[in-house]
Each structure stands twice: as structure tokens, then as C-alpha cells.
């Protein structure tokens, strides 16, 4: 490839875009003092040590992980069987499902949060606000498309009806066919859905802040709390968050690459 100045500039811009923000946060996490100079005047582990020893940090990371675990359990148990059943047996309902799962792309989080507050803040005798359960259920619609799209792309690429017919001829029931034949064929899609949902849950701020807030502080809520301080602790927290997301995203891209090779 020829690299004329224009392309070189674009490439440089791309790398700057991708890496500068996290480098800046990373430097600040280790900077002794960083104000009024282009680079920090010195580096230290003190902020990392202070953050790790801060009880709020352990609580926030713990809460985020508990929330993520609960969400993944709830979302996979609801979404995966429904997507399989809709695709295999109920194509009409599948069209509805397809529409409902992409709805959150057209309705901003703040609007959905407003609706949830209306229903579950006690106006109708149900109080879920302040409880992580509201987040666990609220995140299912937000993340359903992240299961739906990769699973559908696998399902559309295989002859599901032929497989089912072959199974029926052999006298195998639907449950066993789904469990032993169809699900194994779409498991990569399920895993991608799980990881993307994990990233969604630990990155989400709007629901966490408006619906639950300080009663169940997650990493994102702690970032909000720490925003006014020196910024060093906030930087350490962001780095921890970034590393978690980096690991999750790298896993997804490894799976996608393996998928491409298999095709």
C-alpha cells in the first residue's frame, strides 16, 4: 500500500483517537502531580494503593460484578430460549421480537428510565426503585439485541427446518433437538451475546443513577461520586474498568475470528 501524507495523517489520527484518551487516564492514575504541565512531574503507586484500600472501591467493583452476574443469568435464561423458539417455530412472533429488541436504539436510555420510574416508583403499588432487581430486569430489553443479532446470523445460515424434520423422523422430541442440535450450533452467538451484555451492564450509567443510585453503588456510580476530587482515584477506577472491558472485548474478537475461519 502506498502511504501518501493524507493516508498517513488519517492513520495517525485513528491511532490518536483510539489510544490517547486511555493513555491520558493511565498517566493520571500514576501521576504524582499533573497540573500546568504537558506531562506529569513524577510517577507513583500511591493512588493505586489508596484506591485499592478504599472500601468504596471494593464495594463498587463487587456490586458491578454481582449485577453483571445476575444480569447475565437473567438475560441469557430469558433471551436464548425465546430467540430459538421464535426462529424455529413461530416466525410471525419472531418478526415482533426482532422489532422489540431494536426498539432501544430508537428510544434513548433517559426516556426508558423515565418510564420505569413511572411504573416502579410506587405509583402502582410496586416499588422496585433503589433495588438492583430493577436494573437486572431493566437491562434485559437493552441487551436482548446483543443476543438476537449474532444468534440470528447463525440461525439464518443453517437449515433449521431440515434439521428439525430429520430429528422428528428419528423420533427425537423438540426439547432434545434444541438442546443437543440447535443450541450447540449457535453457541458462539450466545457467548458473544453474553460478553456484550457484560460490557453493557458494567458501562451503564443512566439506569444505575436514576433508578437505583447510591443505594447500590456500581463502578459507574462511584465514578460520579469521585468526579469532584483530585481525579487520581477516578483515573485508577477508570483504568480498572477499562482493563475489564478490554478483556471482554478481546474475547469477543477472538471468537469472531474463529467463527470466520470456520466458515
Amino acid at each position: 500500500m502506498r502511504l501518501d501524507p493524507l493516508r498517513l495523517g488519517l492513520l495517525a489520527l485513528l491511532f490518536a483517537i483510539l489510544f490517547l484518551p486511555i493513555v491520558a487516564v493511565g498517566l493520571n492514575a500514576f501521576a504524582v502531580e499533573w497540573a500546568g504541565s504537558v506531562l506529569p512531574v513524577g510517577y507513583t503507586w500511591a493512588w493505586v494503593a489508596q484506591t485499592v484500600n478504599d472500601s468504596r472501591f471494593a464495594q463498587a467493583v463487587g456490586n458491578s460484578l454481582i449485577l453483571a452476574l445476575g444480569s447475565l443469568l437473567a438475560s441469557s435464561l430469558t433471551c436464548v430460549p425465546a430467540i430459538l423458539a421464535a426462529h424455529c417455530y413461530y416466525p410471525k412472533l419472531d418478526r415482533w421480537l426482532g422489532g422489540l429488541v431494536v426498539l432501544p436504539y430508537a428510544v434513548p436510555g433517559i426516556v426508558m428510565a423515565l418510564g420505569l420510574l413511572k411504573l416502579y416508583a410506587g405509583n402502582y403499588g410496586i416499588v422496585l426503585t433503589g433495588s438492583p432487581w430493577l436494573l437486572i430486569f431493566g437491562y434485559i430489553p437493552l441487551g436482548a439485541s446483543l443476543y438476537y443479532m449474532p444468534m440470528k446470523s447463525s440461525l439464518n445460515a443453517m437449515a433449521v427446518q431440515d434439521l428439525l424434520e430429520a430429528g422428528y423422523l428419528l423420533g427425537v422430541g423438540d426439547l432434545k433437538l434444541q438442546w443437543r442440535v440447535i443450541l450447540p450450533c449457535v453457541r458462539q452467538g450466545v457467548v458473544i451475546g453474553l460478553i456484550l451484555n457484560f460490557t453493557l451492564v458494567i458501562s451503564e450509567f443512566v439506569y444505575a443513577n436514576l433508578l437505583v443510585g447510591g443505594l447500590f453503588p456500581t463502578m459507574q456510580i462511584l465514578m460520579y461520586v469521585l468526579r469532584g476530587g483530585s481525579g487520581h482515584l477516578l483515573s485508577v477506577l477508570i483504568m480498572v474498568y477499562f482493563v475489564i472491558v478490554l478483556i471482554a472485548t478481546t474475547l469477543v474478537s477472538l471468537i469472531v475470528m474463529r467463527r470466520k475461519e470456520a466458515l
Binding site: 484518551p21 487516564v25 465514578m223 477499562f242
Partner: peptide, 15 residues
């Protein structure tokens, strides 16, 4: 694309 909210805002404040 997912690096939004406080992490992104704070990175830009530093820069």
C-alpha cells in the same frame, strides 16, 4: 464506541 459517560468525559478533561 462504548467508552462513554464518565470515563470518556474525564479522559477529555485531562487532555
Amino acid at each position: 464506541a462504548n467508552f462513554t459517560g464518565f470515563p470518556l468525559a474525564f479522559a477529555f478533561i485531562i487532555m
